[in-house]
């Protein structure tokens, strides 16, 4: 994934890598290190942008969004652990655009699974997996990182 990203972004000056809390941040931290990026890593918490607030309410959390650099005219590398329905990425894009107008957004995903509900696809992908409905794959971490498949109980 790091190699693929290297090839994509020739101009490394205007990058901003952003991980989605919490699994996406863990993946982003690894990539950030492998690519040896000079810019600090951004962290996005999409809790305030979810589309199911009116169904599940607001749940307590502590990790706030931190974007260390201006978003305007920057090439954003958006990182998440699992891409499932696509709703998280929709929320993340909305939040990023409330900070400014990026030059581009590249979506980097560790695990792509079936069950998409929105027209959102990864640009750089670790691997794909097909799961039955009701099964979930989850990244556990941060140290060591491991993948777990769970059933809806």
């Amino acid at each position: 994934m790091a190699n693929e990203l290297k090839q994509r972004h020739i101009n490394r000056d205007e990058l901003l890598m952003v991980g989605i809390q919490t699994g996406g941040v863990w993946v982003a931290e690894r990539l950030h290190k492998l690519l040896d990026l000079s810019q600090p890593l951004g962290k996005l918490n999409i809790a305030f942008y979810r589309d199911d607030f009116s169904r599940i309410g607001l749940h307590p959390y502590v990790n706030a969004t931190t974007l260390p650099l201006e978003v305007d005219d920057r090439h954003i590398i958006l990182v998440d652990d699992v891409l499932h329905t696509g709703r998280t990425i929709r929320a993340a894009l909305n939040e990023i655009f409330d900070y400014g107008r990026p030059a581009s957004v590249t979506l980097v995903i560790l695990i792509d699974r079936n069950g998409r509900e929105l027209p959102i696809q990864p640009d750089v992908l670790g691997c794909s997996i097909s799961l039955e409905q009701g099964k979930h794959i989850k990244l556990c971490g941060p140290d060591p990182l491991s993948l777990e498949i769970r059933s809806n109980s």
């Binding site: 942008y49 607001l58 502590v62 706030a64 909305n94 409330d98 900070y99």
Partner: peptide, 23 residues
């Protein structure tokens, strides 16, 4: 404490170009 923690995460809303969340 939950109210205080959530208020904490609303503090940096001033740093955004759009000073809103869609909640």
């Amino acid at each position: 404490i939950n109210i205080l923690d959530i208020a904490d995460s609303f503090l940096n809303i001033d740093t955004k170009a759009v000073k809103k969340v869609p909640l």
